[in-house]
């Protein structure tokens, strides 16, 4: 307690869980995309399209729930362009992904023009009854909006599906060796398109969380690089779902912690505090994956174009 000055650890954990949601959602979506062997660098663009679509739908309908659906659909719609270009027209994935980000940033700014300064309908906390009243733990874990729990559930679901189901096995097979998967009769392109759509929807959800809950407003460029952080976390987490969660919590947690330390007047130089989220997240994840037998966990076909005639 003394080390943290006047910071209440329960409140801190609560804020870090909230602050990490957009990155978790986007990163877990991108993890599935990369596991299928596709590198989509357009996460930032899909997130921001999700942010504006979610915001617009929520404002027009008055329902935050529909807003999140709208955000997911918006992100998925943008990712469909990426799927079309890279899977059907076999464009270069890196270039297409970068273009998708630029396109998404521009399009969101255009779509958002009439929404600047509008307030979205508030999203309530999930009512967990007596659980929320537990001292400490209640504040920490049981006073959040539904999306916080959904983000954790999404990580668990992705982990389960990838590890323990046939669908997950097929997806991984496509990502590891698309020629072999094709020879076995799996529709490589179809599976990849579905993975890309899932990634787009999750990034869109993450964006909608930003504009509807975390900063309840629409501002141009609201994601401010969150998509790139998500991409980096997927790599540093060696494509493992639970490590994505850990990475996102570390990053979100240290970001929130350093701001709180400043507000509480801790005597630590601010420069070190502001670079600490990047440094510590990368360090922890790199050290964790350092002494594995496999030096790299990247899917073997990641970023490679697939054509069935070969």
């Amino acid at each position: 307690m003394d080390l943290l000055g006047g910071i209440n650890p329960a409140v801190l954990v609560a804020s870090l869980m909230m602050a990490s949601v957009p990155i978790i959602l986007a990163a877990i979506g991108e993890l599935v995309v990369e596991k299928s062997g596709v590198l989509n660098l357009g996460v930032e663009g899909m997130m921001i399209i999700g942010a504006i679509c979610g915001f617009a739908v929520a404002v027009e309908t008055g329902s935050p729930l529909l807003g999140f659906v709208g955000g997911a659909l918006g992100g998925a719609a943008l990712s469909l362009i990426f799927a079309l270009l890279t899977q059907v027209l076999m464009a270069n994935q890196v270039a297409t992904g970068l273009a998708l980000t630029l396109f998404g940033l521009g399009l969101s700014s255009l779509l958002g023009q009439s929404y600047v300064g509008v307030k979205p309908p508030p999203t309530g906390r999930l009512d967990l009854g007596p659980l929320s009243d537990i001292p400490g733990l209640g504040t920490m874990l049981f006073r959040h909006d539904a999306m916080v729990y959904l983000s954790i559930a999404a990580v668990a679901a992705v982990w389960f599906v990838l590890r323990h189901t046939r669908t997950g096995l097929v997806l991984r097979a496509v990502g590891e060796n698309h020629e072999a998967a094709h020879a076995l009769g799996y529709h490589v392109v179809r599976i990849r398109v579905l993975a890309i759509l899932f990634g787009g929807a999750m990034a869109g959800l993450g964006g909608a969380y930003l504009s509807l809950i975390r900063v309840p407003q629409w501002t141009d460029g609201i994601t401010a690089g969150a998509g790139w952080i998500a991409l980096a976390i997927v790599v540093f987490a060696s494509w493992r779902p639970w490590r994505v969660l850990l990475g996102a919590y570390l990053f979100g947690g240290i970001t929130v912690l350093q701001l709180n330390l400043q507000a509480a007047g801790a005597r630590i130089p601010v420069q070190y505090l502001s670079m600490s989220p990047y440094l510590i997240t990368i360090l922890v994840l790199v050290i964790m994956s350092a002494d594995r037998r496999r030096s790299t966990a990247a899917p073997a076909s990641l970023g490679k174009t697939f054509h069935a005639s070969r």
Binding site: L210, G221, A226, T255
Partner: peptide, 12 residues
């Protein structure tokens, strides 16, 4: 300019 970070700072 980083709305999420600015909001986090205000929250802290």
């Amino acid at each position: 300019f980083d709305p999420a970070k600015e909001a986090d700072a205000a929250k802290a």
